[in-house]
Design a binder for these strands. Structure first.
Lengths: 209, 209
DNA sequence: CAAAGGTGTGAATCGTGATTCACTTCTTAT
DNA sequence: ATAAGAAGTGAATCACGATTCACACCTTTG
């Protein structure tokens, strides 16, 4: 034997892999799944079509990785926003919703791809993980709130799923009010209030800074 | 000229058309869009592949019709349930949600196809009409409730979109709690309460019969 | 009954993109 | 320098379904 991959080549390989993932994410963010054909990804990453297959066994695997990365990033932001277990449940929900919404509106197309766009089953499985992660984050807060007597009795899983659906639909759904011209901040306010009411059964008090 | 289609032949033609639409709906209800290839629809309808194209210019048109039929049916049921303008907004929302939910749970797969499943753009346009119809139905009730001072001030379009999303996700979404074994009635109760809280900002009073 | 349309048929065609693979180019180790 | 294993290339191949179309079969009208 005469050739053994060395640190430098490994790094180069890893870099190429990341360029491919990045190119795929950019294409998805721009035109969704349809725009992200393997050949297009390769072109944008500056490699040949075949090279993509040196790094990923299939298109589905590549996209699964893209989804995994992007969604982990989003979920982390929301979880972190709601992390303070000392503050009241309503405030935690409020800040989580705002974080979710603000980020989604910033990258509308990518958010739509992550939340709702048609993908093939292997990628759908990643999406499931992602949505479940959101749901669990909300469910945890709701559960804590109910336990502390701050929130009315309710099924945390159902409420959390409904929250995820409500936020997704209001922000990037096909009938999102944002489709029409609309001020993003006021949309976020409306949505936050909706979410607060839904879990507290009370009018939201103004928590704004 | 020697041949002019007569009533009987027209009827036969219409019947064939309906068989095709019905077959398509059944396949969608069973396995979603993926299962409903033109050849499969034709087989199930008992006609040849080409015959489908004597009745519809393209697959997309056929499916648009299927969606239109099925969704009109659903929307009508919900609108009718909430039709009584004399009763309080909260009660109208409650009954609309229950109707929506109960029907969706009865035909889970079809509901998913109507609400959320990947479809091609021509069909997506139908879906948009459908979701918008739901949204408008809810928005109308919310608006009336706000005007009557029964509901707190809110943006009806946003609340209505969020409701549609919440219901859809909780019922047929990928993270629906119904995925796990769950009692449908208690899910409906939880969801209805969630929706009532979200628009009223109050604990739901027991409206049950 | 013959002519003239209509309607049904299903195998062949087409379009779209993912995937492959024989070949080239690069890296490292001797 | 040279051998050997990695990695890159992109044109060719494949898979999959929608769509077409030349032909056969029905209905109706004169």
């Amino acid at each position: 034997m005469a050739y053994r991959p060395t640190e430098r080549t490994e790094a180069r390989k890893a870099a190429a892999r990341e360029r491919i993932v990045g190119a795929a994410r950019e294409l998805i963010a721009h035109g969704g799944y349809a725009e992200a054909q393997v050949a297009a990804v390769a072109r944008r990453a500056g490699v040949a079509t075949g090279t993509v297959y040196r790094h990923f066994p299939s298109k589905a695997e590549l996209f699964a990785e893209v989804f995994r990365n992007a969604s982990q990033h989003e979920v982390d932001a929301v979880v972190e926003a709601a992390a303070d277990r000392e503050s009241p449940a309503a405030a935690r929900i409020a800040v989580a919703v705002e974080t979710f919404a603000r980020r989604a509106l910033r990258g509308r197309r990518l958010a739509w791809a992550l939340i709702a766009e048609p993908v093939d089953p292997a990628v759908e499985a990643e999406r499931l993980v992602f949505r479940r992660a959101y749901r669990d984050a909300f469910a945890e807060v709701i559960e804590a709130g109910v336990a502390a007597g701050e929130l009315p009795d309710q099924d945390p899983a159902t409420s959390a799923a409904a929250l995820v659906g409500a936020i997704g639909e209001a922000l990037v759904g096909p009938v999102s009010p944002t489709t029409a011209a609309h001020d993003p901040e006021s949309l976020i306010d409306s949505l936050r209030d909706f979410c607060i009411r839904s879990v507290t059964g009370k009018e939201p008090v103004d928590v704004n800074a």
